[in-house]
């Protein structure tokens, strides 16, 4: 797996645990939603993350926010946009940790992900080889303007108009 952050491929410090693997004695681990109640109580972990389906109810995760440093939303297909709405709702519920999109996303969706509040994108290695870091870096800069807030350069076009700044 490759991890994209701010237009570059970076090393992933997190370890994703399969359900049959036991919790390690330390480190940053990502568990499934089902294991979250138990993992939350394990004080040995440096940091805790959870991977969830894009159909997850954001309110069900809210009670765990204080202990969660990462939420990883699965994109079962790159054309399935539910994750973009879920990300936005998690931010609204108050999640301030790392939001990660994982699946076969392409660089062309980078700004959609950023706009929804995602920090990182995790893609399979062969896909990373296919599109390459340069494409992600370029895609990150593809737009300097957006009609929506938070997609490109923060303020929306409407807000910029109001302030009269370029």
């Amino acid at each position: 797996m490759a991890l994209v952050s701010d237009g570059a491929f970076i090393a992933d410090e997190w370890r994703r645990l399969a359900d049959e693997e036991s919790l390690p004695g330390s480190g940053k681990v990502i568990v499934s939603l089902g294991r979250l109640p138990a993992a939350r109580e394990d004080a040995r972990l440096t940091a805790l993350g959870v991977y969830v389906a894009n159909t997850t109810d954001p309110k069900a995760l809210a009670p765990y926010f204080a202990r969660l440093a990462l939420i990883d939303i699965a994109f079962p297909a790159f054309t399935d946009g539910r994750g973009f709405s879920l990300a936005r709702l998690l931010r609204r519920e108050g999640f301030v940790g790392e939001l990660r999109a994982s699946g076969r996303l392409t660089p062309d969706q980078y700004l959609h992900a950023v706009g929804g509040g995602f920090d990182t994108i995790e893609i399979p290695d062969e896909l990373a080889a296919h599109h390459g870091e340069a494409n992600w870096a370029k895609a990150r800069q593809a737009r300097s303007l957006s009609y929506q807030r938070g997609v490109a350069g923060g303020a929306s076009i409407l807000e910029r108009r109001r302030k009269g700044v370029a």
């Binding site: 790159f78 054309t79 399935d80 946009g81 973009f84 709405s85 936005r88 969706q109 700004l111 959609h112 992900a113 950023v114 706009g115 929804g116 737009r143 957006s146 009609y147 929506q148 938070g150 997609v151 076009i157 409407l158």
Partner: peptide, 12 residues
């Protein structure tokens, strides 16, 4: 304007 390149609603 609102709907153009909407980050959240481009993969409905």
């Amino acid at each position: 304007q609102w709907s153009s390149a909407h980050a959240e609603f481009s993969f409905l």
